[in-house]
Design a protein around this nucleic acid. Sequence first.
DNA 1: CCAAATAGTTTGGAATCGCTACTATATTAT
DNA 2: ATAATATAGTAGCGATTCCAAACTATTTGG
Lengths: 208, 208
Amino acid sequence: MSNASGVNPRTIAELVVQLGRIIHGSGYSGGLAPAQWSALRYLSRANRFSRTVSAFAEFHSTTRGTASQTVKGLVGLGYLSRNRSPRDGRSARLDVTDDARALLARDPSEDLVRAAGTLSATARNHLATGLERLLGYLAQRSGKRMFGVCTFCTHLEEERCQREEMTRFECTFFGELLEEAELEQICINFQPSEKSAMRRAYDRKSPS
Amino acid sequence: MSNASGVNPRTIAELVVQLGRIIHGSGYSGGLAPAQWSALRYLSRANRFSRTVSAFAEFHSTTRGTASQTVKGLVGLGYLSRNRSPRDGRSARLDVTDDARALLARDPSEDLVRAAGTLSATARNHLATGLERLLGYLAQRSGKRMFGVCTFCTHLEEERCQREEMTRFECTFFGELLEEAELEQICINFQPSEKSAMRRAYDRKSPS
DNA sequence: CCAAATAGTTTGGAATCGCTACTATATTAT
DNA sequence: ATAATATAGTAGCGATTCCAAACTATTTGG
């Protein structure tokens, strides 16, 4: 006999918080601290417009000052390289080095990826839907930005070439052409499109 | 056309991590730090056997040293009172004060509770199921203990009295009688029972 | 050309963290 | 009984992280 009123919302909150603590606690490994892992993860997934100190600060829900310190540490360790922008003299793009890519294989949060991998496809879909709603509610309420990939962004414009061989992709926000590989990278200027409702159906391909 | 392979496990992990960061970032409010909020939350929900520095340290995935510091700060602020155990001279029980109970109304993580409250009953059930599985996987893999309430614990023994008026509850682990109000408190020695599979159906009552 | 906004750094002080060493009490084995 | 070991908790160290505020340098808007 199932209870029609469902799980107590507080129970959900407790589970999320607990999960967050376990992740955080596992972040002290491989010689890095949790914030450093988070920076490497973010910068390895972000597109060229979003690999900045400010973007990471916003993604990581912290101040630019704190983010600056975290990045400084990683540059010193040789895991990030700073490339000043030719367009904007104030800005610098942060690129992860090959050493960092190798290190990311030992990212402690990979345990969580494995945990999610043990769930059934429908369980994963349900879980993702719920988490996205929570995230959306909190982001809206606190006026924070949400991050997402070009594929589900309103700023993406596809344009078939005359010879039907390939498609050109353009970001109407930054006004620049995009490589196909960039479509799955995280962007700070993400605006969810209609397609994003069908997000889970079109999610990055898994082994068939 | 829905993809049979479901959401990429990595997407789930990213959502959980992101949610955890937002919670953590919101924890610097009301004059307390995230760890202090976590301590107050835990100690206000834990039963008398579990309100110790060590239990909180384990719950919070940190060391006893760090937990000791966090608790010291809260005692100094008048939010916790230390009560040495008469049984075990090494141990002390931490009780939250009335000031702390009042403060908990402004717990920043209440936003997450509200967010969960906007979901439908079935969405909450799906979400809770998924989160519990993730937590279970990670706890088992890292040899960590899981926390839970007496109601779903194998150590709980119910015993109807002769005059069918009331029921006596006993914890077979600690060998002590339990008040009815204690059955919903968190315990460090939780061992999930058969009933816990039906957890969501029997979850703490919500307004009907 | 000047005011305001933005990107990023620096500094200070506090909190948090893992770690190690330490005290004191309990438990267990001998 | 006594010695060895385990447990509860604290203290100190050095590093990371954190916010807040002050600061430089560049860009943008009027």
